[in-house]
Amino acid sequence: MMSYSAFLTEYGPRFLDGATVTAIQTVLAAILAIVIALVAGLMRLSANVVPRWVATTYIEIFRGTSLLVQLYWIFFVLPLFGITLEKFTAGFVAVGMNLGAYGAELVRGAILSVPRGQWEAAIALNMTGAQRMRRIILPQAMVIMLPPWGNLLIELLKGTALVSLIAVADLMFEAKQINGTTFLSAQAFGTALIIYYAMARFVITPAMRGLERRMRRRLSRA
């Protein structure tokens, strides 16, 4: 039986490689999710029925089915429609599109909870719709929605573990490979669990807290 420190010396580099891929997938999926959430969230609030309807359909489909189903559909079925994505791309696109649908509802809710007076004041100052949204409403909505976005980003990090099922060599994938060759399941999966936890607790959570503090400070100075 191998000691845990010997196990770590032997397989540590592979866990790190996997964790790097997980981090890259998380960042790319997060960027996609934020863009989709902003666009779909604003479309849901549009006065025009067409964009509203498109966004609602998108959100309902992606929130109504499983991320795993979406990932398999994008990877195995989309090529039949002539759109072939490489597995690495298919991975973060599926995760980003899924979490973007959840994020859109956060964006919508936050924009709606900006006090009415702020809208009225912007109109009174003769701002255009775009100016009003960009300079008055969105900055305040940001402060409101940042805490739930912290939770959503942790969900996103967890969601990226599914890309291992289409053979993207992320942390989950490496853990499975190491388990397959060593049969040291507790060590292989346990180490991966600890790394995921560390990423959520010691990277995402503090980063979001810091961002919340900065946004609040900027808003009170303005």
């Binding site: 967890k158 291992s164 989950m172 040291l184 399941s185």
Partner: peptide, 20 residues
């Protein structure tokens, strides 16, 4: 801990660690 780690990894963990 349970909330911030992937369910799929937990499924593998429970399934494979027992036999060890």
């Amino acid at each position: 801990f349970i909330r911030s780690t992937p369910l799929i990894l937990q499924i593998f963990f429970v399934f494979y660690v027992g036999p060890q």
